Computed example of a mutant assay.
Amino acid sequence: MMRQLVDTEPDEYIVAILDSLLRRTETSRFDLEAAAIGLSAKGRSLLSLVDDRADSGSESVVRVLLAQAGCAATPQVRIPFTDLDRIDLLVGDRLVIECDSEQHHGGREQRLRDLRRDAALACLGFIVLRFDWRQIFFEPASVVSAVLRYVELGLHRF
């Protein structure tokens, strides 16, 4: 299966699939490394990007695209001393990236909840960039460019 993935899919999709395998099945990192034996160097190098903390494919895709652009993003970060749930990705120590799916962010109530979270994060000094799954999968360059611009301006740091 891994050889077929490496031969047919973009790197960010491969990592998203492997992240999901680690998080949602009994597959271990050892299992992935064993399955990667015999892969090309590129295929084996993708294992360093796999992270079982990723909560969705869109998060994984954004994280990998940013890593390929030289920008590290940490998945599923908890904000200490708050009642806020985890944030999807954190770049630096204050740039929050939220990756929205239709299922969890598509309704009116869900949208209002997201806006309230964004306001609470802003009150704590965080900057929130929120991307829809359509942007992530169909306009990935614009997503990466937006994040990199904030990093260039130093806005990812307190």
Rank of each mutant, 00 (worst) to 15 (best):
A54S: 14
L49F: 15
L148S: 03
A35F: 08
C71I: 10
E98L: 12
G92C: 05
S142R: 14
R108Y: 10
L121T: 03
G92P: 06
V91N: 00
R3T: 02
Q76E: 05
R113W: 02
V91G: 04
R63Q: 03
D55F: 01
H105A: 08
H104K: 07
R130T: 00
A34I: 02
R94K: 12
I14P: 08
L39H: 07
T25W: 11
L95M: 09
S142G: 10
E12K: 09
A69Q: 10
K42A: 11
D83G: 09
E152C: 13
G43M: 06
S45F: 09
L32S: 14
P140E: 04
L66Q: 00
S58R: 12
W133M: 14
F126C: 07
I17W: 08
D19T: 02
D51T: 02
Q68F: 09
V61Q: 08
A41E: 09
F137L: 14
G92M: 02
D132R: 12
L155A: 13
F30E: 13
I127T: 09
L112H: 11
V91A: 04
E26V: 02
L115S: 03
A34P: 06
T25Q: 05
R44C: 09
R149I: 01
L32I: 07
R86D: 07
L66H: 01
V15I: 02
V50S: 11
V144F: 10
E139D: 13
H105M: 01
F137A: 07
I127A: 09
D118M: 01
S20N: 15
L66D: 00
D93W: 01
L148T: 00
R116A: 02
L65S: 02
S142F: 11
F126L: 11
Y150Q: 09
S145L: 13
E109W: 04
S101G: 15
Y13K: 14
R24W: 15
L89I: 00
L84D: 06
I79R: 06
Q68A: 12
L124N: 05
G154L: 10
Y150R: 03
V15R: 04
E59I: 01
L84S: 06
A73P: 08
G106W: 11
C71R: 05
E33W: 12
V128D: 00
S48G: 14
Y13T: 05
R94H: 10
V50L: 14
V50R: 13
D132Q: 15
S48W: 14
A54F: 00
G92L: 07
